[in-house]
Simulated scan of single mutants.
Amino acid sequence: MDGHARESARLGVTAYYRTGQTLACVAVDVLAGPQVTLDGTALVARVPSEAEAWLCKHTEVHKLDLIYTHAADPGSGDLGLILRAQRAGDIVLSRLLFLIREWAENSWDCIPGEEWSRF
């Protein structure tokens, strides 16, 4: 792993870069980040099981890959995203990662540890 991060608390996003300043991943915070939709479906701040069910159906209908990280987070290299979980007070909601295919398919080795430690 050779990434580093720049967080913008004001925007509610964290950008992760590879060596050479190449943007490789953007994480959207549940509490402070923008809402992101795909085909009219909200992906941020959803109940994780509902977000996962939607992603499973979406990837099946559109014949896209469905992957799971070492932490059992669902994602798709074809879509360039992983749906993680983040604590929001007393509940847990979906945290969205946009990332390059290489990082999606090799998330444990590529995504910096500071992202995996967020919950």
Results as ranks from 00 to 15, higher is better:
M1F: 03
M1P: 12
M1L: 05
D2I: 14
D2A: 06
G3I: 02
G3Q: 07
H4A: 00
H4Q: 01
H4V: 05
A5H: 14
A5S: 13
A5Y: 10
R6T: 11
S8D: 15
S8C: 11
S8G: 06
R10Q: 13
R10W: 00
L11D: 07
G12V: 13
T14Y: 01
Y16E: 04
Y16D: 04
Y16L: 08
Y16V: 06
Y17Q: 08
Y17R: 12
R18L: 03
R18P: 14
T19G: 09
G20K: 15
Q21W: 02
T22I: 05
L23T: 11
A24T: 07
A24Q: 10
C25N: 10
C25D: 09
C25E: 15
V26W: 02
V26N: 03
A27Q: 04
A27E: 11
A27P: 02
V28A: 04
V30F: 05
V30S: 02
G33E: 15
G33W: 11
P34W: 12
Q35K: 07
T37A: 14
L38P: 09
G40A: 05
G40M: 14
L43E: 02
L43I: 08
L43P: 00
L43H: 08
V44P: 01
V44G: 03
R46M: 13
R46E: 12
V47F: 09
V47P: 00
V47A: 08
S49E: 14
E50L: 05
E50K: 00
A51P: 01
A51H: 02
A51T: 04
L55C: 06
L55Q: 02
C56K: 15
H58C: 11
T59G: 13
E60G: 07
V61F: 06
H62E: 13
K63V: 12
K63M: 13
L66P: 06
I67N: 06
I67F: 13
Y68R: 00
H70G: 07
A71P: 02
A72T: 07
D73T: 03
D73G: 02
G75P: 14
S76Y: 02
S76C: 06
G77W: 13
D78I: 13
D78T: 11
G80M: 04
L81E: 08
I82K: 07
R84D: 01
A85C: 12
A85H: 06
Q86M: 07
R87C: 08
R87G: 12
R87H: 04
G89I: 15
G89H: 12
D90I: 09
D90K: 10
I91D: 11
I91R: 15
V92M: 06
L93R: 14
L93E: 04
S94L: 05
R95T: 06
R95N: 02
L96Q: 08
L97I: 05
F98R: 11
R101I: 12
E102P: 03
E102H: 14
A104I: 06
E105F: 15
E105C: 08
N106D: 14
S107E: 10
W108D: 12
W108P: 01
W108V: 13
D109V: 00
C110L: 04
C110V: 00
C110I: 02
I111K: 10
I111G: 01
I111L: 15
I111V: 13
P112C: 01
G113I: 10
G113N: 12
E114H: 05
E115Y: 15
W116F: 14
S117C: 14
S117W: 11
S117R: 04
R118D: 01
R118C: 06
F119A: 12
